[in-house]
Nucleic acid binder design. Sequence first.
DNA 1: TCTGGGGTCCTAGGACCC
DNA 2: TCTGGGGTCCTAGGACCC
Length: 453
Amino acid sequence: MRQVASVLHLDLDAFFAAVEQRDKPSLRGKPVVVGGVGGRGVVSTASYEARKYGVRSAMSTREARARCPHAAFLSGRFHAYRSTSEAVMTLLRETSPLVEPLSLDEAFVDLAAAGLPDLEIDTVTEVAERLRRQVAEVTGGLTASVGLGTSKFIAKVASDLDKPDGLVVVPPGTEMDLLRPMHVSVIPGVGPATTERLRRAGVHTVADLETVSEDELVRIVGAAHGHSLHELGHARDDRPVVSERETKSVSVEGTYDTDLTDRKLMAALLTRQARSVSERLRASGLAGRTVTIKVRLHDFTTMNRSTTLSSPTDVAATIGRLAVGLLADLDTTGGVRLLGVGVSGLADWIQEDLFGDNVGDADEATSLPDADVVSTSSTIPVTWAPGMDVEHATMGRGWVWGSGRGVVTVRFETAQTTPGPVRSYPIDEPELKPWRPEPTTGATVPDMPERHR
DNA sequence: TCTGGGGTCCTAGGACCC
DNA sequence: TCTGGGGTCCTAGGACCC
């Protein structure tokens, strides 16, 4: 625990809505709602004028319209938000090299790394006041709320206390005086589910939490969560401000205004999303081994299915093919409201592409091949790896899209017009054999067959 | 016609390995 | 005719955050 209030948290007030009001004077002083404007959209940000009508973040746009019909409903201009955010983050980095952005509109700044003469309250308060003035300058008039404290937790709580356009400093040693009367949900990581569990245990405020032993908390909410809850409940927070965080996954998802029932359309949408994921991976110089799809059904039940390759990929065709294959195993009767594709298990290096997928990288969303999905399983060791090609005497050549130990799943792209039933073959089925030998490193790899391009 | 999109982290079970 | 123990990887689901 620091003895000085050297952690600063800055939060731009009603950020997206404020940028819109800045750029469009006719919106100033009026309710502005930024978010999804479709039938299933939700509110990202409501201006303070709109909040007076009860419009809140994460509320459905439908409800927001009902509460505040005269508001301006905007879908958002992310380039403007990003460039405005960049200006603020640059300003923060000029103040201290140790800046941790949490999102476009929020960041921690470690003033202990700022090279200040001291970290007394007056000094850090002055820095915060100057920052707030400079934020207004570089953003064309946006306001920020700032909190200062001895930890991330306290700084963040502080910045929330006097919104908008406020500054709150929590003097070292007074943390628990501030926290005790507050509801437990002030603690990061305590959402609706944890709040309910704690409520049943008679814990409502931080003062209540202070009296519960760590063992008891672990029993109530689990090991990791229980430990951190016990620490934060006593205002103990040693989490450092970290400027560089590694990306762990890249994903794209979409909710559709009407539920999808056409599997071919779903496959085409997944393929398009896979291209988008691929582009973003490549733009960041990343590739990943695990491809995951997310499917939300009409009744909001949400399923994830994933498969892991033996080496990382950033290839759109590969990601798309795996995604479509994963969808094949799911029952989507009743309709699908959301589809998504993600890649995780990221590495910032890309193994040589043994199968030449990079040569042709364009499964057209509109011309998806019909496919027959065949599962085979056996207790003998799997000799095929994802990405390999296999050949079947009558079904032709297929592509291994997933494998487990003792199980191999092969997707055959055939001339059939409709997907056939799922069939099982033993893995030692004599007709199922590697189509071509595994190339050795450095060997010349033949081109992918036409249909894989 | 309630309920976005982009993430992170944790848990739990099964397979596998030594 | 009983039956390990620890560690890692993978998958699926869930909670949470902005």
